[in-house]
């Protein structure tokens, strides 16, 4: 059974195990500092498909199948697959799971989808509703640029605060029994909107949601930042991370020592010219399922908090004058 220990936090009494995880990334991500930690690096970001949307769903499907293979499981042994991405109507996920024979729940949490799916999967398994659940998410630079910004060949300059959408996917397979790191706590975020309207400054739009969820997590669990080997955020990037650590300090929590951000880890910010860092569902997805999961398996990390943040942004509504709501979901993972 799960125990609700606060307004936003659930302690999972029978914590589910992350049985295995797979990460596949694009060409540029494969040139970054984490290149050795991914299961596969694409040599062609189209994946042989005719449209970027199809490329993304193929990327997602390949990652799901790879995760199953690594966990030595068959599709009929999985009770649910929880998947989502950034595209309208979650087409990346819907067309990737179309070919799978697994009950599906679609999620949209923008870039927070990885931890949103692990939160729900954790509670599903902890509550006895499932034995094994797959958590899957992806993003693709080219399909995201198309939907949220400009055509790829358009000649424009990005602002220094802009982030680079990661081409990548991550899939974690969770089970009620087995060996591996466990999800022990889940803190679900609220939608927070501090009135940021600049769609080129997602880090600043998402940081308040991260602060809100992180503060709630510490207050409700009684844990301190020093209890964690790492506090990993999804894609706050350079600016969002700076805001998070500074404002958390004002809240009374010093996370400067152990805070890391997937958006800063996945690229060499200067050399790869990604301005404020990586972003997208696939950023946390591939960094967690690739690099971080391997570090957990090697016991280099004992206890971590993973908190992916999402800018719940729709370009049309922002053009109508609205600001950007944001969300952050956190999960505690212990070895």
């Amino acid at each position: 059974m799960n125990t609700r220990i606060g307004r936003q936090t659930v302690k999972i009494e029978n914590p589910p195990v992350i049985l295995d995880a797979a990460a596949i990334v694009g060409v540029k991500e494969g040139q970054g500092p984490l290149r050795d930690s991914f299961d596969k690096i694409l040599t062609d970001d189209t994946l042989g498909e005719k449209s970027w949307e199809k490329s993304e769903s193929t990327l997602q499907r390949q990652t799901a199948l790879l995760a199953l293979e690594k966990a030595h499981l068959k599709q009929n042994e999985i009770d649910y697959i929880l998947a989502g991405d950034l595209l309208n109507q979650c087409v990346g996920a819907h067309y990737s799971v179309r070919d799978l024979d697994i009950p599906f729940l679609g999620l949209y949490g923008a870039c927070s989808t990885m931890t949103e799916s692990m939160s729900i999967a954790g509670m599903l398994i902890g509550g006895g509703g499932a034995q094994r659940v797959m958590c899957l998410t992806s993003s693709h630079f080219c399909s995201s640029e198309r939907q949220f910004r400009n055509p790829l060949e358009y000649g424009g300059q990005r602002t220094p605060s802009a982030q680079w959408t990661v081409t990548g996917a991550g899939c974690a397979v969770l089970g009620a029994k087995g060996d591996g790191p466990k999800i022990t706590h889940v803190t679900t975020g609220k939608v927070i909107d501090k009135g940021v309207t600049d769609i080129s400054n997602m880090g600043a739009a998402m940081a308040p949601a991260a602060i809100d969820t992180l503060s709630a997590h510490f207050n409700e669990t009684g844990m301190k930042p020093s209890d964690y080997d790492m506090i990993l955020t999804g894609d706050l990037g350079v600016i969002g991370s700076d805001i998070l650590t500074e404002l958390m300090l004002k809240e009374g929590f010093d996370i400067r020592r152990n805070h890391r951000d997937c958006g800063k880890l996945i690229f060499d910010i200067e050399k790869q010219d990604v301005h404020a860092g990586g972003s997208g569902c696939g950023c946390c997805g591939s960094v967690f399922c690739g690099y971080i999961f391997k570090e957990l398996k090697r016991h280099n990390l004992k206890k971590i908090l993973v908190m992916a943040t999402g800018a719940l942004m729709n370009p049309m509504v922002v053009e109508q004058g609205e600001s950007i709501p944001a969300i952050a979901h956190a999960v505690t993972i212990e070895n």
Binding site: T159, K194, V196, N201, A204, P208, I239, L247
Partner: peptide
Amino acid sequence: MKNEMTNKEYNEYIKTKTPNSKIFSNC
């Protein structure tokens, strides 16, 4: 958030955190 900022205060604050485009070299 204990030290709740108003939206206006937050937007002022993030301006100090966000680097500007290099106007002179861009021009």
